[in-house]
């Protein structure tokens, strides 16, 4: 895209050159040499991606080996698809898939819209300082690590002196085992995701909203549209491309729920509904030193994610949206 627009000024020059047969050497390396400074500026970025993103991908070969650190990638025996066969034939595979898909789906349904709604609400605030104050406060949880979040919820929800259970007991109720009851795990997980991420998630949408032409609102007001109608007919359609891009990116992480959060809220009594690929990789792969197996599971997750992104992107384009690429 960049090359196409900047190449335009060079066109007349090229056309004059075609009139001179001797000058044919120069257009051999046209765009590249002319924009060499731009390319030079890109070198650090390209090097970064090559060294830190693409080169390590070579390490994925250990998914097809019986990798042992002291033998190295060169010396470890090749086992082909053994680790994948083990993953797909494992008794827990269906359970892992079900849990991961359920939780991801719940996140898309319940957690994904929250930042959009929050951004719409913030957008309606007129008091500048109040708006900024609210924004700062709701950004805050994003900067807490999962360990802290899990600890806060532990202190609140424990039946052994947790504040919320103390309130319930004082009000005459029975303590609720929020932390161990399998039925509570998913609501708890989704709730924590929303609490931690929703405020931060509004940033992108708020930025998109600043680009909306204010004349549209004025016109709508003249036509008698209230606040709600303005949001529905002007703001939301205006940020639709942003929502779709965010949605496609979220789809890409469909199997990548992240290890830390679930590991911290899961225990023996609720594992049945909480065990996901990421936590399984930890027990089966890392704890036992089965690095190859862990890599195989990771590769599987990555491929599924890639596939989902491609599908979501195609779908978005079919509906006339821009997509992510």
């Amino acid at each position: 895209m960049n090359a196409a627009t900047t190449a335009a000024p060079g066109v007349p020059e090229a056309s004059t050159r075609t009139e001179r047969p001797q000058g044919r050497r120069r257009p051999q390396r046209p765009a590249f040499w002319r924009h060499r400074t731009l390319y030079l500026m890109a070198v650090p970025g390209i090097a970064y991606f090559l060294v830190f993103k693409y080169a390590p991908m070579g390490g994925l070969v250990i998914a097809f080996q019986d990798y042992m650190p002291f033998l190295g990638i060169g010396g470890s025996p090749w086992v082909g698809f053994d680790h994948f066969v083990r993953l797909f034939t494992e008794d827990t595979f269906l359970l892992l898939l079900r849990n991961t898909l359920t939780i991801s789906f719940m996140l898309l349904v319940f957690a994904f819209p929250v930042p959009i709604i929050l951004a719409l609400l913030l957008n309606e605030l007129r008091g500048k300082y109040f708006k900024r104050g609210v924004q700062s406060v709701i950004y805050l949880p994003h900067f807490l690590s999962w360990v802290i979040v899990a600890s806060i919820f532990y202190v609140l929800l424990s039946t052994d002196g947790g504040s919320i259970n103390n309130l319930i007991v004082d009000a005459g109720g029975d303590p609720v085992p929020f932390l161990t009851d399998p039925d509570w795990l998913r609501p708890l997980y989704i709730g924590q995701e929303i609490w931690k991420g929703a405020g931060w998630g509004t940033i992108v949408y708020l930025a998109a909203m600043t680009a909306v032409d204010t004349q549209l609102y004025e016109a709508a007001e003249l036509d008698g549209a209230g606040r709600l109608r303005q949001s529905w007919h002007i703001t939301l359609p205006a940020i639709r491309p942003t929502i779709i891009v965010m949605f496609i990116l979220a789809i890409g992480d469909f199997l990548e729920l992240g290890f830390e959060h679930m590991f911290l809220v899961m225990n023996s009594l609720n594992r049945e509904v909480g065990e996901i690929f990421d936590t399984y990789v930890y027990t089966a792969g890392i704890q036992n030193g089965q690095l190859s197996y862990a890599a195989a599971v990771g590769l599987f997750k990555g491929l599924v994610g890639l596939l989902l992104v491609i599908m979501a992107n195609r779908l978005a384009k079919r509906f006339g949206e821009e997509g992510v690429y």
């Binding site: 060294v51 080169a55 991908m57 070579g58 390490g59 033998l71 190295g72 990638i73 060169g74 010396g75």
Partner: peptide
Amino acid sequence: TAIASATALALTLAACG
């Protein structure tokens, strides 16, 4: 070996070891 691919990197390390 920074510029080399990861496979080559690992091979070098193993070989040097």
